[in-house]
């Protein structure tokens, strides 16, 4: 195997260093070693070692990856960056922040129908798992965690909507405030659905897109409805 590999590049390099090899390399030194070294050092995958880099670099790289995916969700163009290397950090952060904001002041008051932290958490993860299983059952060609990653990252517009809603509620709660919140939540709901559909639609059989989109629609609809009806006590 090694000999076969060596002979490949060696054959390619022969016209360049034909005279040189005759002069400097004697018979007992194997030619393969000298030829494979530059090839190995030039490939970016070989020296991509995270063992001896500073911790800061590692953190910054991961944060950059998460941030890049946020940007992808905000500009949903057909791209496979969200699908290629999935991670669940972004979804976790989004889900926790959304749940914390929906929790509101209901921790101290016992009698409220407001959404609890666990409820929001369970709805997001359970819903994402159900959508993923559904898309797999319908014949989608996407792996389990890739789909979870996309669905989790596409909660971002709704988290933004929640933030806006809380700010609007700080200003006051009346008819105007409700209309503003309704518009914001509707827009962000549409954004979430469109973004996740854009990412996931390619992996589905073309004639069944509607069947896959329906549970996604329902999922984001429930979340956005929770956001819209949220009133801090």
């Amino acid at each position: 195997m090694a000999a076969a590999e060596g002979s490949g590049p060696g054959g390619a390099a022969k016209p360049l260093f034909a005279g040189l090899s005759d002069v400097s390399i004697s018979e007992d030194i194997p030619v393969e070693g000298e030829i494979t070294v530059p090839v190995g050092s030039h490939s970016p995958d070989e020296d991509y070692s995270t063992l001896d880099e500073p911790v800061r670099d590692t953190i910054m790289r991961d944060l950059k990856a998460v941030g890049k995916k946020f940007v992808h969700v905000m500009y949903p163009k057909k791209s496979s960056a969200l699908l290629r290397d999935w991670d669940l950090w972004g979804p976790l952060v989004l889900c926790v922040s959304l749940a914390l904001m929906l929790q509101g002041g209901s921790a101290d008051s016992k009698e409220d129908g407001g959404p609890q932290f666990a409820e929001v958490f369970v709805i997001i993860w359970f819903g994402a798992v159900v959508i993923t299983l559904n898309s797999k059952l319908l014949g989608g060609t996407i792996s389990f965690f890739q789909s979870l990653c996309v669905l989790g990252y596409c909660v971002l517009p709704l988290t933004v909507a929640m933030l806006v809603c809380r700010l609007v509620l700080l200003a006051g709660s009346g008819t105007v405030s409700f209309i503003v919140r309704l518009i914001v939540v509707m827009a962000m709901f549409a954004w979430s659905t469109i973004a996740s559909t854009a990412f996931l639609a390619d992996s589905q059989p073309p004639n069944r897109k509607a069947l896959v989109v329906y549970p996604i629609f329902l999922f984001y609809f429930v979340i956005s409805w929770m956001i819209l009806t949220f009133i801090p006590q």
């Binding site: 790289r61 999935w86 389990f144």
Partner: peptide
């Protein structure tokens, strides 16, 4: 939070990918 959490992210991702990335 992400500062402490990020380094395992890479490892976790790799490990999880090995465990779960497609059947």
């Amino acid at each position: 939070m992400s500062g402490a959490g990020a380094p395992p992210a890479g490892a976790g991702r790799g490990g999880a990918a090995a465990d779960w990335g497609g059947f």
